[in-house]
Nucleic acid binder design. Structure first.
Length: 831
RNA sequence: GCCGAGGUGGCGGAACUGGUAUACGCGCCGGUCUCAAAAACCGGUGGGGGCAACCUCGUGCGGGUUCAAAUCCCGCCCUCGGCACCA
């Protein structure tokens, strides 16, 4: 009787054993080369989903493989535990965010353990625990010291009915998600991190990240959005509040300056109110309201029509002295540049549309090389290069040169200067929320903003709070929390009640893992020096910009503080694709979610992991298939049976019970070759993260082994070698079944502590090849022959083929192309 | 609109540097075992033509380079993901 593959017993047995023996726990070993393998830690939403399983299965293969290659591997896990869902759950189910979060962590932890990932659980990190977040507060204080944390006013979404601030995702089509009130904008003093100070460094640093996908780097580059241009001053015609005034614009096209025929301000620009007549006040207010409404729908496909309002004012074009009208326009952003734009309709499409709508002159200042364009008749802006025209002393010069020449001229005349702008904005970290890391600051009427002293950390987030059903943070109303002493003068002080964006927690957790129990510092410098940088980071493409940019920013600040050597946190990045079903992303609303727990129960963790690695390469989206899962499960059953069969055979022979042919049997040799070729292929493909082809190679391997076993002529040493290789190669992918069979084979615990197998180059060499013979590029024959033939010999064999000569009838041979060891192509023409 | 990824059998996918297109798995068809079924195992499986040997077409579409193109070049179409008036 063949033993049944009882995956549940096997898997739980080994999970327990791994736990007891702590074989996945690591410590720094200065003499030993290290690898730091990291997956993006999860938000503990309650249940692990297939995306998690995919992420962690990929990481686990890489981690286990590197252990077998002799590296000291750090492979930790933890919980990104602060965040909005816990507060929503608190409102809905009347549970404390802390309790809700911790019970989710407990159940997800159970799930991850059941999947058998090789984590060092002793390094588990929970960002909502004081031991962790106190160091987030410490980091905030250091940022403050370095001038990287500051306060300024910024607008928030405000629901007047709930009297609370809403996150963008809580605003649906301009309405509050809970009560459907119209959401207003409110200005609040908030905390920012000065990431813009690192814009250039973060941009330059991308160059070094050769182990990152090109598309992620491009996304970050676009997000930082460096553009070179000039700042130009435009004097306002007439006085404003009794004073002369200049408005500065940023332009990337100083070469088009002579073509500026009007001037635009963002509707929210602070100078607008000063510049307008009282009669226009109402019109401006109406205009602003309309634009604000448009902004609420900004994710729609339709681009709103260009729209403006003349302010009854003019500015002087500083180069040609012309008075040009000033408008506010719906397409000018206050956040970018200076919130003011010089409009050149002939050479900018947006300005062109605006000018046609409001009948503003279009003046061409750059003429394309071989074409004449006329401002009055052109139908779209010309944004390309050409020769200057209508530009006074610059006429006739190629526009490309004038970018620099005009900037230099502006500088000389003191009306402008060369300038670089970034699209990147400072990082708003204030959240008017309860379930987050308290910002460690105290407000004192006498001393102003005072940081909490380091030895007072952490500012504890009060537990046992009352969360009302409107979603307001309970912190401002908690007198025991707010009321405190000023650390400077000892007088009365009020605590900051804003908490930090959860991205602050995930910007340094990879450093905490290096020394998770350190109570003297966020991380020990020695441990970080050993483990950092992360050698392989694995996660979803959705974090291409924000999380990965913030983590890079933190790392650079720590590096500047002298805390770590590495300037970049993640040397190599793998972005995995989504798990989809029926062509769509899995989601509750579509009802196409597959629960990993059910799969594990029905088929086991090894099957779940193996399928997810087999169905597609990591970067690609993965189509879930229940049938495919069954196929993989069948494969594991075959592995189980075949290995047990082999083990029995080997021990029987060794006990002298069986008689079988051995020695230099040709089928035995071909199994040896198959074994070594599989080792080679699997090793190569793991290095390239082509796990799907690794698994198919192992499938072919077992197919070959089964065929060999059926021959009846079996060789003990060949069978032993093949069985051992099979288990070793498969162990990073299906860790439980291989551990079990390793034991059955009489090998010591654990297969996961073994060395990765190596192959014999002699056995990988082919002695037999299939020679492909083509006539005029078409395959006409396939001839089995020996390897290592000369080109002439190959051509001769090809020419002697009957099938080939049939196709040569009536044609003369022009030449023979020979690809050594592979192919002969006979090129002919009709006689 | 811009940026990025991709389009290969009935399906998921393979083909590394241009050299056997469709490995491996799923599904389907046929068989062995069985009273029967399940499981397991064996064989077949891109389209068209032919009794067959074989011929022919074929990697989104149209062109090109090459002895040879899924792979390289030019133009177009479609799908997915991200960003969006960035001056």
């Amino acid at each position: 009787m063949i033993d049944r593959y009882n995956f549940t017993d096997i898997e739980t047995k080994w999970q327990q054993k791994w736990d007891e023996t702590g074989i996945y726990n690591v410590k720094e070993e200065p003499g030993k080369p290290k690898r730091y393998i990291l997956e993006m830690f999860p938000y503990p939403s309650g249940e692990a989903h297939m995306g998690h399983v995919r992420n962690y299965s990929i990481a686990d293969v890489i981690a286990r493989y590197n252990v077998m290659r002799g590296y000291n591997v750090l492979h930790p896990i933890g919980w990104d535990a602060f965040g909005l869902p816990a507060e929503n759950a608190a409102i809905k189910n009347k549970v404390q965010p802390a309790r809700w979060t911790n019970s989710n962590i407990a159940s997800m932890k159970r799930q991850l353990k059941r999947l058998g990932f090789s984590y060092d659980w002793d390094r588990e990190v929970n960002t909502s625990e004081p031991e962790y977040y106190r160091w987030g507060q410490w980091i905030f204080l250091k940022f403050m010291e370095r001038g990287l944390a500051y306060r300024k006013k910024a607008p928030v979404n405000w629901c007047p009915s709930c009297e609370t601030v809403l996150a963008n995702e809580q605003v649906k089509a301009g309405l509050c998600w809970r009560c459907d009130s119209v959401v207003e904008m409110r200005e609040l003093e908030q905390w920012f991190f000065k990431i813009t100070g690192y814009a250039q460094e973060l941009l330059d640093g991308l160059q070094e990240l050769s182990g990152w996908p090109e598309r992620v780097k491009i996304m970050q580059e676009n997000w930082i959005g460096r553009s070179e241009g000039a700042m130009v001053d435009f004097p306002v015609v007439g006085e404003v509040d009794g004073k002369e005034l200049k408005i500065t614009v940023f332009t990337t096209r100083p070469d088009t300056l002579y073509g500026a025929t009007f001037f635009l301000l963002s509707p929210e620009h602070p100078l607008v109110d000063q510049m307008i007549d009282d009669r226009l006040k109402e019109d401006v207010a109406v205009f602003r309201r309309e634009v604000a409404l448009e902004a609420g729908f900004d994710r729609s496909e339709v681009e709103p029509e260009k729209k403006g309002l003349f302010l009854g004012r003019y500015v002087k074009n500083p180069l040609n002295g012309q008075d040009i009208p000033v408008y506010i326009a719906n397409y000018v952003l206050m956040e970018y540049g200076t919130g003011a734009v010089m409009a050149v309709p002939a050479h900018d499409q947006r300005d062109f549309e605006f000018a046609r709508k409001y009948d503003i002159p279009v003046v061409v200042v750059i003429r394309p090389e071989d074409e004449d364009i006329d401002g009055d008749t052109m139908t779209e802006a010309y944004a390309g290069e050409g020769v200057m025209t209508n530009s006074s002393i610059f006429d006739g010069i190629p526009s490309r040169e004038c970018l620099k020449k005009i900037t230099a001229y502006l500088d000389k005349e003191k009306i402008g200067t060369a300038s670089v702008h970034y699209r990147l904005r400072d990082w708003l970290i204030s959240r008017q929320r309860y379930w987050g890391n308290p910002i460690p600051v105290i407000y004192c009427d006498r001393c102003g903003i005072v940081p909490v002293s380091e030895n007072e950390l952490p500012v504890l987030l009060p537990g046992d709070v009352k969360i009302d059903n409107k979603g307001r943070s309970p912190l401002p109303a908690l007198e025991g929390f707010v009321k405190t002493k000023c650390p400077k003068c000892g007088g009365e002080g009020r605590r900051e009640t804003d908490t930090m964006d959860t991205f602050t927690c995930s910007s340094w957790y990879f450093l905490r893992y290096c020394s998770p129990h350190n109570d003297k510092a966020p991380f020990s410098e020695e441990a970080a020096r050993y483990w950092m940088p992360v050698d392989q980071y694995i996660g979803g493409i959705e974090h291409a910009v924000m999380h990965l940019l913030y983590a890079r920013f933190f790392t650079r600040v720590f590096s500047d503080m002298g805390l770590i050597g590495a300037k970049e946190p993640f040397s190599n990045l793998l972005t995995q694709g989504m798990v989809i079903k029926e062509g769509q992303k899995m989601s509750k609303s579509k009802g196409n979610v597959v629960d990993p727990g059910e799969i594990v129960e029905k088929y086991g963790a090894d099957t779940a992991r193996l399928f997810i690695l087999f169905a597609a390469p990591p970067e690609m989206d993965l189509e879930w298939s229940d049938k495919g899962v069954e196929g993989v499960h069948r494969f594991l059953k075959r592995v189980y049976r075949t290995v047990l069969d082999n083990v029995r055979f080997v021990s029987d022979v060794q006990a002298g019970a069986a008689t079988s042919g051995s020695g230099n049997d040709p089928s035995a040799k071909s199994i040896r070759q198959l074994t070594h070729r599989t080792i080679k292929k699997v090793t190569q493909d793991i290095e390239r993260f082509n796990f799907n082809t690794v698994i198919s190679a192992v499938m072919e391997f077992i197919n070959g082994l089964q065929k060999y076993n059926e021959t009846g002529i079996r060789d003990v040493s060949v069978t032993s070698e093949a069985t051992e290789a099979l288990l070793l190669l498969l162990s990073p992918f299906a860790p439980h079944i291989t551990e079990e069979l390793w034991q059955h084979a009489g090998k010591p615990f654990s297969v996961h502590s073994e060395q990765w197998p190596s192959y014999d180059p002699e056995l990988v060499k082919t002695d037999q090849i299939t020679l492909i013979v083509q006539v005029d590029g078409k395959v006409r024959d396939k001839i089995e022959t020996v390897a290592g033939l000369s080109q002439e010999e190959m051509a001769d064999i090809a020419m002697s083929s009957e099938r080939v000569s049939k196709h040569l009838e009536g044609r003369s041979v022009l030449k023979k192309v020979v690809v050594p060891g592979k192919l002969v192509n006979i090129v002919t023409r009709p006689e």
